[in-house]
Each structure stands twice: as structure tokens, then as C-alpha cells.
Amino acid sequence: MKFLCAGTELAEAASRGFEVNGNKLFAVRRNGQAYVYLNRCPHRGVGLEWHPDQFLDPSNSLIQCATHGALFLIEDGECVAGPCAGQSLTAIACREDAQGLWIDV
């Protein structure tokens, strides 16, 4: 397991990008639960963020790709709209404890 960040560094309904061992990742918190994905759109293989740490749509309810506007469910990474509908983001196994957020590498 590799330490990603303190739990307080990932606010509710917020997202944050990371680089771990050369891999670009991002984390999102929704309803108190943290989710971590590879920062790579299944459509073109590009990074998803609009600006650093901005991976969500304006309502903060879906992950949005800045390149072509694909929308993904926060809970499982499934693309529900856009050019890669039916495909999914690559989930990274994670857990959270009193120290913070950890990922399986």
C-alpha cells in the first residue's frame, strides 16, 4: 500500500490529482467515500482534468473529461455519456484509515 494523502486533503464533492510511480491518478470524494482512478480517458487516453485537481462537472456529481466532455459515474467510473459510453475508467484499489488515503500499487 502507498500513502496518497491525508483524508482532510480530499474534501467532500472534490477531486485531486496525483502522480505515483510515474502514473497519473486522481481521487474523488462523494458521500464520505473516496474513489481513485487512473487519470486516463478510455476514449483517447488523455488526462481528464480541466485545470489541476478539477476532474468534476460543474455540478460536482460526475467525473468529466475536459477533451470531449465524456461523463463518468464517480462510484464505478462507468462512462454514461460521450464518445466512450459503456467503457470505464480504470479504478485503483484504495482504503482510508485515520492517517489518510492509501492505494494498492
Rank of each mutant, 00 (worst) to 15 (best):
H51W: 15
S88V: 02
H51C: 12
E19V: 15
V28A: 06
F18N: 07
Q33W: 03
E96N: 01
L73I: 15
E75I: 08
G17Y: 05
G22D: 09
G32I: 11
W102A: 02
E9D: 11
A93N: 10
C65D: 09
R30Y: 07
L73G: 15
F72W: 07
L89M: 13
R30E: 13
T8Q: 11
P58N: 14
Q99V: 14
C65Y: 01
E9L: 08
L56S: 03
Q87R: 10
N31R: 02
L56G: 04
H51R: 11
F3H: 09
I103F: 00
C65N: 09
P58Y: 05
V28K: 03
G45Q: 04
L56K: 02
F3L: 07
F26G: 03
W50H: 15
G17L: 10
K2F: 07
C65G: 11
C41A: 03
S88F: 05
S15D: 06
F3M: 03
I92P: 01
L4C: 07
C41M: 01
G17I: 12
L48N: 07
P52I: 02
Q64R: 05
P42Y: 10
R44M: 15
G82Q: 09
Q54F: 04
E96C: 00
A34L: 06
H51P: 14
D104F: 14
G17H: 01
A27F: 00
L10T: 08
N21L: 14
A34E: 04
I92N: 02
W102M: 13
G77D: 15
D57H: 15
L25W: 02
V28N: 06
R40Q: 06
P83G: 06
A81Q: 05
A13N: 15
G47K: 13
D97V: 07
T67P: 00
F18C: 05
A93M: 06
G86S: 03
M1N: 13
L73D: 00
S88A: 11
A66T: 05
G32M: 10
Q64N: 04
S59A: 14
G22W: 02
H68D: 04
G45H: 08
Q64I: 13
T67N: 15
G47Y: 00
S15F: 12
M1T: 06
W102Q: 02
Y35G: 03
C5L: 14
K2G: 06
L62R: 01
G47V: 14
P42G: 08
A91F: 09
I74P: 08
Y37C: 03
Q33T: 08
C79T: 15
L38W: 01
A27C: 13
